[in-house]
Write a protein that binds this DNA or RNA. Structure first.
Lengths: 425, 425
DNA sequence: GTGTCGGCTGTAGGCCGACAA
DNA sequence: TTGTCGGCCTACAGCCGACAC
């Protein structure tokens, strides 16, 4: 009948296979999830202690509902600006409609965190896959006129090698997405000059995922040689969700009441973390928080760097100066450390970047730099627009000076490791 | 470029025109909204007093998130089982993705409802349009193979009359949807035997709205002769929305906290009412509530009727018997009237119907019936499956007996008027 | 090395009346 | 009266190398 899928596509094996149930209850492939979440996202390990910031949670909810965090809503039921919690569970998910990745965390508030033995919590983990590539789609890639142009080194690194004795060399690829749905593509090496292409099956994928030029697609080869694929929507596409379920005010209250009730009764509560929606992480490893708050001397005028994700899904550091200190909302959330630093950014293109950040988000440039700043760091020098990786020498120096300043093991919680996985292309 | 709409369609005038902003802030066409909401949905007038039931609100949220109303969540912050409120504002909306209709109500809790003068609130209003038709789509209607077959009487009633001197008679129709988006269709009268069809433009509409066989489409001609169109999804398609924004527990808390805070501070709060998602209305006109609670004698064994919407978007009444009385949740919500009646239904196909209803949802069959029940109402008689409208004689009798029992004006709040608008086809 | 285009081809989208329920 | 189908035509999806940045 008319409700069945097109027969030809199904017969030729280029139609998607059966998908998971819509509920998406199981835990997703962690490598793929992290690849889609991006290089900056790391999740604290289950069983570790974390600091939960209701303000940050509300910021995420407000961003999701496209409302500013309403100033008129009181802190009701009353709740402190941060809760030390045991991270009881983390499950990885992806939105059934948009493939947007998110994590559900189950938090158990700890009543007297100071009394507990400070076990050596390990830092946050970010298992970024090694054998993967990520390409931002061009107009040609997403048009119905043709297929997908695979970057040469990407194809050679991630896809099975073609049999080049064939003319033209071609094979069928099967890649599994976050919902365990299989997608079939014809991979061919042709054209003058020769190039790798995905042809048959590609347009089905593009239309099913509603991909547009500017969105990114990524392929992974996992340990068992299985191909995985995921997508990252362009930043402009805010997954608008005016949510006809609950008013934004009620959601705001819900965040507070759920946490308040859990803290009062020492019971668990659940939150969703949307890495690509939230302006900042609001569940921070306790060790990272402690180091940032107790081991860092911040003053107005201090110079720092902070990591951002580039449009090419890579990372780069931006320079800034601390211009002020103080609570973002001293009435409702006094003595919170959430975004307690007012900052200015060196580059004029910094319009979108936050004007308030939290202590644990920055990498301070300590005394050695203030005594002897290299020319590249002065406020007046106009550097050419930096490319990913052109700070490598500085990185090395930074690590040494920070170790000297903070006592050797400060780096683990600041996520220096494994950041440059996408810059080698 | 590739992001622009198909040129041919745009040039020929069969592509949708510019739409409203995604936020959908303005108030929608009320006639169209009510047509999409269905014949049973009525909204209390702005400025009237209503009763708000948190339990019912939570039921709707749970239905939207596909969770049962969790039994483990306490009534926190504490809130009474019902709040008498002033209905401060009502705005009509439609989901940007699904066209699902919903209403936002702003409620102001009234502290001492008994002290206020009981102004004669008018009953709820349901402006169902007169010049409209609604058709459930067939497999042929939604397939890409052809167009849309318009029922003859529908075309003659709602569409502009064709010029039958042309061969074949044809015209272009422009119909506006809930988002003020215009859709263009070619309306032609052809075939052997002759019939009305929508051809060019129809498949664009079907794919844009993602209509499937079983969904319904409805057309309205308003006062100014402007054509409006709306859709009703088939019941099976639960707009699943696991809502990666807030956990269902937090939403539950949010409902309670928002209402609790508003009641405590005598301030307004906002709720969304999703007519086609909610099992029952949870904002009830105060007058309707009072009449049902204080003027109705309910006892176990009592017979009643209740109105339901049929699959054909019409209405019919089902017979039932009260089998028990009592709070649905005596621990958290004692002395609530929400679904306080346990009921059984006469027909064996009653599997989906609620086993608990509220007083104001039923039409009790009062003493005259108990003294002298007509054969059709006895529990043992097996009536043939009733069709809409075959209770007309009974209706007439019911009205008289109820007026006698309840004092003359009881009918307005029970929505007897204007119910049979779709059964005449 | 790869983004975009013109050219070509095949298929499916879509308009028609036939026919039957 | 209207749901489904076969027939038919054509627009566009989609594969190809050319060419340029």
């Amino acid at each position: 009948m008319y409700s069945s899928p097109p027969a030809r596509l199904a017969d030729s094996g280029y139609a998607p296979a059966a998908a998971m149930d819509a509920g998406e209850r199981r835990n997703l492939n962690s490598e793929l999830w992290h690849a889609c979440a991006g290089p900056l996202v790391s999740l604290p390990p289950v069983g570790s202690r974390v600091v939960y910031f209701p303000q940050g949670h509300i910021e995420q909810v407000a961003a999701s509902t496209q409302k500013e965090a309403d100033a008129h809503i009181p802190n009701y039921p009353s709740i402190p600006p941060r809760l030390v919690c045991l991270l009881d569970n983390v499950t990885l998910h992806a939105d059934v409609e948009t493939d947007e990745v998110f994590a559900q965390m189950t938090l158990l508030p700890i009543q007297n965190p100071e009394k507990e033995a400070l076990a050596p919590d390990q830092g946050a983990v970010n298992k970024q896959p090694t054998e993967y590539f990520c390409k931002t789609l061009t107009a040609s890639d997403t048009s119905t006129h043709g297929g997908f142009s695979i970057p040469r080194r990407a194809a050679e690194k991630v896809f099975p090698t073609l049999d080049f004795t064939q003319t033209p060399p071609a094979q069928e690829l099967v890649a599994r997405d976050l919902h365990d749905q299989d997608w079939h593509f014809r991979h061919i090496y042709r054209g003058q000059p020769r190039r790798h292409l995905l042809t048959t099956g590609w347009s089905v994928f593009v239309s099913a995922k509603r991909l547009q030029a500017g969105d990114s697609v990524l392929f992974i080869r996992d340990d068992k040689g299985q191909l995985l694929l995921g997508i990252r929507r362009a930043n402009r596409q805010q997954t608008v969700m005016p949510s006809s379920v609950l008013s934004s005010d009620s959601m705001h209250f819900g965040v507070l009441a759920a946490a308040s009730h859990a803290a009062t009764t020492s019971s668990r509560f659940k939150i969703f973390y949307n890495p690509r929606q939230s302006p900042s992480e609001f569940v921070i490893p306790l060790a990272k928080y402690h180091k940032a708050v107790y081991n860092t001397q911040v003053t107005v005028g201090m110079r720092f760097r902070m990591v951002f994700e580039t449009e090419e899904s890579s990372v780069r550091r931006y320079m800034g100066t601390i211009t002020g200190l103080g609570d973002i909302d001293p009435i409702r959330w006094p003595k919170s450390h959430w975004r307690s630093l007012k900052v200015g950014w060196d580059e004029s293109t910094a319009g979108e970047r936050q004007h308030r950040v939290s202590l644990w988000e920055i990498e301070p440039l300590t005394t050695p730099f203030l005594l002897c700043p290299p020319p590249a760091l002065s406020l007046t020098s106009k550097r050419p627009r930096g490319m990913p990786g052109d700070d490598d020498e500085l990185d090395s120096f930074m690590k040494k000076s920070q170790m000297w300043a903070n006592g050797g093991d400060a780096l683990g919680s600041l996520k220096f490791g494994g950041l440059a996985m996408d810059t080698s292309w």
